[in-house]
Computed example of a mutant assay.
Amino acid sequence: MNTTLEDISKGSELKEQWHQLKAENPKLRTKNAADELGVSESELVACICDGETVVRLTEDWEGIIKEVETLGKVMALTRNESAVHEKHGTYQNISFEGHAGLVLDENIDLRVFHNRWSFGFAVPVENPRGTLNSLQFFDEAGTAVHKIYLMDEERVGKYNKLVEKFRSDDQTNEIRVKDSIKEKKTVSIDEIDTDEFLQKWSELKDTHDFFPLLRTFKAGRTDALRLAEGRFTWKISNNATRKMLELSSENEVPIMVFVSSPGMIQIHSGPVNRIKVMDHWLNVLDPDFNLHLREDHIAESWIVEKPTEDGIVTALEIYDEEHNAIATFFGARKPGKPELEPWREITNQLKLMEVGV
């Protein structure tokens, strides 16, 4: 899409508004500033694009992600409106096939849906420790899908080389985003054949088979949980996430934490140790893993069981009031291995936490 003089003028006007807002509140994060100014986060980043300090990148998402391996240790960040997932590690064992890619490092574990990405920028970010060089990616609605922060200062040269290699020819300071992204249509819960749906659920062989099951019946995620309540699912107290993290920490039970954006799923596998609550935020503050979760956004919490060839796999799933997934938690496990018994004990305790308690 061609950029017009009017577009550039709008970008310059937005830049002035942001500078004024930053002068009034220097610690305001980009995401919060975008919300306050009524624009998407990518529009706000684009308005300061100058081709030198902030650089727009090409849409070679596969090439960029593969090149991130040269940056050594980085911090990967994936967020949605209610949860922020931060993980330190290196991008290794990278592969792409069709509409999705994988990063399978011991610490950085990602499912990359790069066909949903539309904009990318190299952005210096100021924080209390100084300037962090970052790569930031957004979908066509301007929502952040993934961010990568350089942590090894000795790799700045590698970072600059990556930015130059994937520099876009278009370095204007305005982009056009879509108002919204159409989600795949689901049917009313009353239109789903409950008996057939639950029969197919009982025949699952792998947790990854659940999403095709939902598509087959055109079922919304929380509708599916309601249909299976009492057999495969249990609705529980919205205090369950805090309780689960505390029990996992106290009993040294390694867990898996999934947080997704419109174009990425980011996973932590391992222990959680330092659990801290600050205002509405429930936090995990460990050296290589941070989770920041808005407890006040949790509208529904469910224990969910899925049959697999390795036995029952149990998850804690939490949703906001619009039925968007906030985060999903499992006991840490590898394919071919049964679920950890200590994790099952924790989820059995959570089942006793009644809704509203």
Rank of each mutant, 00 (worst) to 15 (best):
E24Y: 09
L57P: 00
E354N: 10
P262V: 05
A23F: 08
L44W: 01
M264Y: 00
H85T: 02
L245C: 08
E69I: 00
V112T: 09
I64V: 15
E295N: 07
A34R: 00
T70E: 15
N127I: 11
K243E: 14
Q266F: 00
W302F: 05
H146S: 07
D206Y: 06
A141H: 02
Y149M: 08
E300W: 04
I175S: 01
F330P: 02
W18V: 00
C47T: 14
V55E: 01
E252V: 13
L110K: 00
G63W: 04
A76N: 10
I192D: 03
R231T: 15
T3N: 09
R56L: 05
Y159V: 00
S118I: 01
V253Y: 00
T328A: 12
K27E: 14
D105F: 01
F217M: 08
T90D: 12
A46W: 04
D310T: 05
V45H: 03
A46L: 05
W281K: 09
M264R: 02
R333K: 12
V163F: 10
G63I: 02
F217W: 09
V145H: 02
K87S: 12
S118E: 13
K158D: 15
I303Y: 01
K147E: 14
F330N: 04
I265V: 15
M256Q: 08
D279A: 15
G263I: 00
N133K: 14
W234R: 06
V45G: 00
M278N: 09
I8C: 03
A240C: 10
F137R: 04
V145G: 03
A46M: 03
D152Y: 04
H88D: 14
Q17C: 10
R155T: 07
D296F: 09
H323F: 11
G72Q: 04
E69S: 15
P26W: 12
T30E: 09
T186A: 08
E62D: 11
G72W: 05
E300I: 08
P254E: 07
E229M: 11
R274T: 11
A144V: 06
N238P: 03
G157F: 08
G130M: 11
W18I: 01
L352D: 11
E305F: 08
E13F: 10
I312W: 11
T314I: 08
F166N: 04
